[in-house]
């Protein structure tokens, strides 16, 4: 007898295994939900892992208030549909002080608006394990990430102190002050995420589909003019372009691509034939050499 597994079947089973293992080993886990396509897949796999029960943990969303409007609407719809327990964290102090993605360098903005409230949320509720949608194929320093990634007190990630992982065994026993990040999508690629969304007929934020949108072209990248907080430079005027997004961060920091792919099938076809890796559209990663690794050491996901 030869059963036939596609590579997606294997990835799905592995992720479900990781979810179940972490939920059993950690005292109080939480799922970090960012609304994007990876979070969509992450949440779907979590539901499969614990079906027919409910998710045995809440979901945490760090809202910078600079998220696309369509993203928040999408999030709220899912929360309602699946009866999820949502915790939202925002750095209100920073917003009051006027921190924004235009006047601050991407790395500083990300630290203040994402990393700080993320750490605050984890500390406030005493979460000892946090599920994230990070993939090893995203970036060079991620390629060495473990499935269970340990953080010392203060959420610091030390690449030299990570635990070796062998076979399918996962060791989630925490030392004093330690917490863990758990990455069930470790072995997925961007293409797998899309293939799986298509196969499972998952709904994604409409921003991933091409549509005529008001845009600004700057430094060779197409940025979306989502609301009037976008400070225009002299001579700049929003132009309508058919664009979509491969990755969704904060809207002023996420560049779109010109595309006519308006259906999921077309988006998948376009992604499978893509010539440029997805994070090239994320401005924060290009900020400095080893940017992602540095952000991680400071506690970013």
């Amino acid at each position: 007898m030869t059963a036939h597994f596609s590579h997606l079947d294997l990835l799905e089973s592995e992720s479900i295994h990781i979810f179940r293992e972490a939920a059993a080993q950690f005292r109080k886990p939480v799922l970090l939900y960012s609304i994007g396509k990876d979070s969509t897949v992450l949440l779907h796999l979590a539901r499969k892992a614990f079906w027919p029960g409910k998710l045995p943990f809440p979901i945490l969303h760090v809202n910078t208030t600079w998220k696309f409007k369509e993203m928040i609407a999408f999030r709220d719809k899912w929360v309602k549909e699946f009866g999820l327990e949502l915790i939202e964290m925002t750095n209100h102090d920073a917003i009051a002080k006027g921190v924004n993605p235009y006047d601050y360098a991407p790395s500083i903005y990300t630290d203040i608006m994402k990393t700080v409230p993320l750490k605050a949320g984890l500390d406030k509720y005493g979460f000892d394990g946090a599920f994230g949608g990070a993939r090893r194929d995203e970036e060079a320093s991620r390629a060495k990430e473990r499935v269970f990634s340990f953080r010392a007190e203060g959420h610091r990630w030390d690449p030299r102190r990570q635990r070796p992982e062998m076979w399918r065994l996962l060791n989630g026993r925490l030392g004093a002050g330690e917490t863990a990040r758990i990455f069930p999508l470790s072995n997925w690629t961007e293409r797998d995420i899309w293939r799986y969304i298509l196969r499972e007929k998952l709904e994604v934020v409409p921003l991933y589909m091409a549509k005529e949108r008001p845009t600004i072209e700057r430094n060779g990248q197409i940025l979306m003019y989502d609301d009037d907080r976008f400070p225009l430079k002299p001579g700049e005027k929003p132009v309508m372009r058919s664009v979509r997004f491969r990755t969704l961060g904060c809207w002023p920091l996420t560049a779109g691509v010109e595309s006519t792919a308006t259906t999921l099938e077309e988006v998948v076809a376009e992604t499978l034939g893509a010539r440029v890796s997805e994070r090239s559209g994320r401005l924060i990663d290009h900020d400095q050499v080893g940017a992602m690794e540095k952000k991680k050491q400071e506690g970013y996901f």
């Binding site: 997606l8 293939r195 998948v268 499978l272 010539r275």
Partner: peptide, 14 residues
């Protein structure tokens, strides 16, 4: 480059 656009949505093995 781009050849995978026409490939099956799922790969038959890993």
């Amino acid at each position: 480059p781009g050849a995978l656009a026409t490939a099956a949505p799922e790969l038959s093995g890993l």
